[in-house]
Nucleic acid binder design. Structure first.
Lengths: 197, 197
DNA sequence: ACAGGATCTTGACAGTGTTAAGATCGTGTG
DNA sequence: CACACGATCTTAACACTGTCAAGATCCTGT
């Protein structure tokens, strides 16, 4: 933590924080390793001691945002667990996380080449935490409602697509919303999920 | 069209085509104005006679892809007009367009700063053609089915979010699909839209 | 105490977007 | 038909970027 010594002390975290700050202020296009390094009072090549290259740095930021996303969904899951609103509220949390931080959505899903996976390709079907939480809640609800087992997969996918699509739409520039958008989100999700419950 | 003269003859179109080709071959990260110019046998600064800057070039590519998207939806709309499958099939066309060209999805929706709008912010509510077609078909179906007028807006948004979300999900890397994904798309859309029809 | 690894700096290179200045071409106007 | 003017293209340069090699500095375990 000493700031005047040769070694920074906490450079990795500082770089990530300053990187996010820079993107929020000037947009992702203005992000450069050199600028972030300068913001941390450190030289050009210093970041290369902590990240393989710029993509590695971006992936670290994505991971950081993904952790925030996970925490946000977990909180909503616990709050409404075993409630009749559990699924709509979880979906709303999914959408609101990005609605309130549009840059998070862009940054998490806009760079296909390096983006971390939401759904996994390993044979054990181990999804990323956010998706796993959503699926878990959905399965529970749909089973309880007596949905035919063979349709549950499609319903889960539909539920995921709905909230992900709402996230995409609500973070688009220049999309118009007549009413309070936040209130409508819950109704929209409910209008889809209710028939299943 | 003469290729050896000082003037290229059709540089603007060539740049766009070569740009798309380059992205498809080497990824969007490898796209540079200089490389595209070279591919067209033209010098560094030549593109600046046709586009204000790189963003202008990217916007032109987006516009080109948007035209393809519009044509694709219009075709599906005409094919299934006044059918009981019109809305699911239109939704499927929406998803399949991007599923079959994942790079189109990225390029159209991944760059918030410059992306052309799907929904418009002008008071006349004039949406972009693809969205307008989808809304038109949805309104017609929902009205015919006797949906309460004040819920139609939410249902349309849900429909849009569903197909847009499916597009996002199916173009993600490393998302696993057990069965033939194309067939499932129709069922997923139907499972949502049927209750309304 | 000190060797070795982690961290950081300096300096350099190739590639990029962009602009200014000027060369070449085509085309409408007299 | 001439020719001036605008559209198109080239050359040359600038600042900025990602990245790496070589070396300086610091920390930590033994």
């Amino acid at each position: 933590m000493k700031s005047r010594s040769y070694h920074h002390g906490d450079l990795r975290h500082s770089l990530i924080e300053m990187g996010i700050e820079l993107i929020e202020q000037e947009g992702e296009g203005a992000l450069s390793l050199r600028k972030v390094a300068a913001k941390c009072g450190v030289s050009n090549a210093a970041p290369y001691a902590h990240f393989k290259n710029k993509d590695g740095f971006l992936i670290a930021i994505q991971q950081h945002i993904m952790d925030l996303f996970t925490a946000s969904l977990e909180k909503a899951f616990e709050e409404y667990e075993d409630t009749d609103r559990s699924l709509p509220m979880l979906g709303k949390a999914y959408v609101m996380f990005f609605y309130q931080n549009p840059f998070y959505y862009d940054f998490l899903f806009s760079r296909k080449n390096i983006s971390i996976k939401l759904s996994s390709d390993d044979p054990n079907n181990r999804d990323t935490p956010p998706l796993a939480i959503l699926k878990k809640a959905a399965i529970s609800i749909f089973r309880k409602a007596g949905s035919p087992e063979k349709m549950i997969q499609d319903k889960i996918t539909a539920m995921w697509a709905l909230v992900h699509g709402l996230s995409a739409i609500t973070t688009m520039p220049n999309v118009e919303y007549d009413d309070s958008w936040e209130l409508r989100i819950e109704e929209i999700i409910r209008s889809i999920s209710i028939p299943y419950v």
